[in-house]
Amino acid sequence: MNDFITYLVSGVAIGCAFALIGSGFVVVHRVTRVVNFTQGTLAVFGGLIASTLLKGALPHGIAEIVAVLSAGVIGLIFGFIATGKRGTPPLISLLITLGLSTLSAAFFILFWGQNPISPPGIGGATDVLGARIETQRLLVVVVTVIAFVVLSLFFDRSYVGKGLTAAASNPRAARLVGINVRWMGFLSFGIAGVLGGLAGVLIAPTNAVSFASDLPLALGGFAAAVFGGLVSVWRTLLGGIVLGVVGQLVAGYLSGSYQTEVALLMMLAIMIVRYKSLSAEEAK
C-alpha cells in the first residue's frame, strides 16, 4: 500500500511537469498553429540554469525564479527564430523548433556535460497516508496548480490574454483591430518558455535532467497536450497527471524502461479515439 501511494504521488508530480510542458504546447499551438518541439528543451534549460545559479550561491527561490524567467526569454528567442519570418508555414516552424532542440542538446553537453544534474530541492520528507514522500514532489503539485490557475486567469481576465485568444480565434479580425498577431505568437513562445522552465526547475531535484531529457519530457508533455486536444489547458493538466501516474505504476510494478513507451501508447490511443473531434476542431 505504501509503495502504491509513493508511486501515485510521484506519478502526480511528474505528471504535473508533463502538464506544464504540455500547456506550453497548447499555448503556442493555439496562437501560432505551430507544434513547438523545443518545449522539452526549455524544461532542461530551466533545470540546468537553476542548478548553476544555486551552485553560484544564489538563494533558493531567487535562483529558481531567475531560471524560469531565463527559460521564458529563451522561449521568446526560439519563437522569433521559428516564426519570425513573415508567412512561415507552421510545418516549417515545427522543423525549425526540432533543429533548435538538437542544437540546444549540443549546447547542454558543452556547458553542463553529459551527466544528469540534480540541483538541490527543498529537501525533507512528508508523511502522506503512511508513506514517506519527498516534500519536493508535493511542492511540484502545489506550484503547478497555482501556475494553472494563474494561466487561466491570464487568458480569461486580462486584456493581453484576451488579445492572445483573439489572435488564436480569428487572426484576420485580430489584425484589423490592430493586434500584432506575429508578436502575439512570440509572446506565446515566451509563455511556453516560462511554463517549460517551471517544469524543469520543479522536477530536476527529484528527476535529474541532462541533454537527453528533452525528448522524454517533450513526449510526455505532448501526450498530455494531445489529451487536451491541443486547445484546453485544464484537460492537459488531467492528461499529464494520468500519464504520470500510469508511467510510475508501470515503472514500479513492471519495469522503469517502459515509461516512454507508455507515453507513446497513450498518445496513439488518444489520437485514434479523438481523431474525429481533433480534426473537427482543426476545421474551425
Binding site: 486584456y159 484576451k162 488579445g163 485568444t165 483573439a166 480565434s169 480569428n170 484576420r172 479580425a173 485580430a174 484589423l176 483591430v177 490592430g178 493586434i179
Partner: peptide
Amino acid sequence: AQVPEGRQMFADMSVEDNLRLGAW
C-alpha cells in the same frame, strides 16, 4: 477602422470582449 466582410467575430468570446478588443 474596418467592418470586415463576413463580420469576423471572435466567436468564443462574449460580445463585450469583442467590443473591448476593438479598442486594442
